[in-house]
Simulated assay, not measured.
Amino acid sequence: MDDVQLSPVSGKADLDAFIDVAYRLNASDPNWVPPLRAEVAELLTPGRNPFHEHATMQLFLARRGGQVTGRISAHYDHLALTQPPEQGMGPGTGNWGLFEAADEATARALISGAEEWLRGEGMTRVLAPISLSIWEEPGLLTLGHDHPPMVMMGHNSPLYRKWIEGAGYTVAKKLLTYELDVSKQFPPLVQRIVQSGERNDRIRVRKVNLKRFHEEAAIILAILNDAWADNWGFVPITESEVAYIGKKLKPLVREDLIRIAELDGEPVAFMMTLPDLNPVISGLNGKLLPFGWAKLLWWLRHPTNAQMRVPLMGVLKKLQSSRLASQLAFMMIEYIRRDAVAKYGSKRGEIGWILDDNQGMIAIADAIDSTVNREYLIYEKPLA
């Protein structure tokens, strides 16, 4: 297409080019946060990222006149193929992601090449962009280009929407993030709900114990896989992924920012909050050397004035239709808010992503006076 040549990534030089093109194409965007290059390489490497234990992937580069003009991953998750089709994934559903393109001709060539590869692998439908797992950076940013993303959230050129929709893709699902001023107390109604829960002897909301990190991670995994099992796009997280994610996030984890709620001594809900690492790494251009590692290490030990993101929370399915579910959520949010302000000087928080039809979570977000600040779209297309 318009002299664009597509080729599969093969070898270290191609992989380096695949990683590097994102930095080059986004260099002029002040709100794009360069990820650490070593982290991107690890994400893409089988044997290092356990996603590849249950996925098949091919990376592609686009070139024009020998110059790399874009990239894309084509992949499918074998666990996703076993999910009920009415929940978004299911048999025959493949994905592409990690999409970057210098121009529309490059975008057309990349998307067409990814579709062709997925057809050859027996896929009949595409959900995209998903980079790489639904648990990582799903969706195309379509609202919120005017500010940088928080940790573990994607950011892309606003041009991509037109190019993707021009390739025949329609919206399958909208994902929302909400922001709020955590330095302010929540509205009186929320405070009364929290106080009511504090008087209930059946309820205990506790901090995680990092000395029992693996046990706590297992509790959170069990709640998460149960709580999210009926959600659109759900793919179960494996034990090896939990161990991997736990190891990656451990430097960011704080006992007072992750809460587990118990009912009659049984863990029934959790909420995870992470201090936002992105302002620290935004000026490193993806490299820890020569001095980036010292800046990062100091901040990890002293995360002051930190913004906070709630990437995950869950309540066991058996409680989700009860008033208790929202009460537990409000209690966990309030306890984390208090500690975030008192111990880390936090002023801004972000919750998400949240599915746009998750009325329960949207009601909670509205009740604490948060507002939508970013929107991501996941597209679909049949592979006829």
Score class of each variant (00 low, 15 high):
residue 4 V to M: 00
residue 4 V to L: 00
residue 7 S to R: 07
residue 10 S to W: 12
residue 11 G to A: 11
residue 12 K to E: 15
residue 13 A to K: 15
residue 13 A to H: 14
residue 22 A to T: 08
residue 31 N to E: 09
residue 31 N to M: 05
residue 33 V to Y: 10
residue 33 V to K: 09
residue 39 E to Y: 08
residue 39 E to L: 14
residue 41 A to L: 14
residue 44 L to D: 06
residue 49 N to A: 13
residue 50 P to V: 11
residue 50 P to R: 10
residue 56 T to C: 12
residue 56 T to K: 13
residue 58 Q to V: 09
residue 58 Q to M: 10
residue 58 Q to F: 04
residue 59 L to W: 07
residue 61 L to S: 01
residue 65 G to M: 12
residue 73 S to T: 14
residue 74 A to I: 09
residue 77 D to Q: 11
residue 84 P to K: 06
residue 86 E to R: 14
residue 87 Q to A: 10
residue 90 G to W: 08
residue 92 G to P: 03
residue 94 G to A: 09
residue 96 W to Q: 03
residue 96 W to S: 06
residue 97 G to E: 07
residue 98 L to Y: 13
residue 99 F to R: 12
residue 102 A to N: 09
residue 103 D to M: 07
residue 105 A to E: 09
residue 106 T to F: 08
residue 117 W to C: 01
residue 118 L to P: 00
residue 118 L to V: 04
residue 124 T to G: 12
residue 125 R to H: 15
residue 130 I to V: 13
residue 131 S to N: 09
residue 138 P to Q: 04
residue 139 G to Y: 05
residue 145 H to V: 04
residue 146 D to K: 10
residue 147 H to V: 15
residue 152 M to D: 02
residue 153 M to T: 12
residue 154 G to I: 12
residue 155 H to W: 05
residue 156 N to Y: 04
residue 156 N to W: 00
residue 160 Y to K: 04
residue 160 Y to Q: 02
residue 162 K to L: 00
residue 162 K to Y: 03
residue 167 A to F: 10
residue 168 G to R: 07
residue 171 V to A: 14
residue 174 K to R: 15
residue 179 E to N: 09
residue 181 D to P: 03
residue 182 V to W: 00
residue 191 Q to N: 10
residue 192 R to N: 13
residue 195 Q to P: 04
residue 197 G to D: 01
residue 201 D to S: 11
residue 201 D to G: 08
residue 204 R to F: 11
residue 206 R to Y: 02
residue 216 E to Y: 01
residue 218 A to D: 07
residue 219 I to L: 06
residue 219 I to Y: 02
residue 221 L to G: 05
residue 222 A to M: 13
residue 227 A to T: 11
residue 228 W to M: 05
residue 230 D to S: 04
residue 231 N to D: 06
residue 235 V to I: 11
residue 235 V to Q: 05
residue 237 I to P: 05
residue 243 A to V: 13
residue 251 P to W: 08
residue 252 L to Y: 07
residue 256 D to E: 11
residue 259 R to Q: 14
residue 267 P to L: 02
residue 271 M to I: 03
residue 276 D to Y: 08
residue 282 S to N: 09
residue 283 G to A: 06
residue 286 G to F: 00
residue 287 K to P: 01
residue 290 P to A: 01
residue 291 F to G: 04
residue 292 G to P: 04
residue 292 G to F: 00
residue 293 W to T: 04
residue 297 L to H: 06
residue 300 L to H: 12
residue 304 T to K: 15
residue 306 A to L: 05
residue 310 V to H: 00
residue 311 P to Q: 04
residue 316 L to S: 11
residue 322 S to R: 02
residue 322 S to T: 09
residue 323 R to N: 11
residue 325 A to M: 02
residue 327 Q to V: 13
residue 333 I to P: 03
residue 335 Y to H: 15
residue 336 I to L: 06
residue 340 A to Q: 01
residue 342 A to P: 00
residue 344 Y to H: 11
residue 347 K to D: 00
residue 348 R to N: 06
residue 360 G to H: 02
residue 362 I to C: 01
residue 364 I to D: 04
residue 365 A to Y: 01
residue 365 A to I: 06
residue 365 A to M: 03
residue 366 D to T: 15
residue 372 V to C: 10
residue 377 L to W: 13
residue 380 E to W: 08
residue 383 L to E: 06
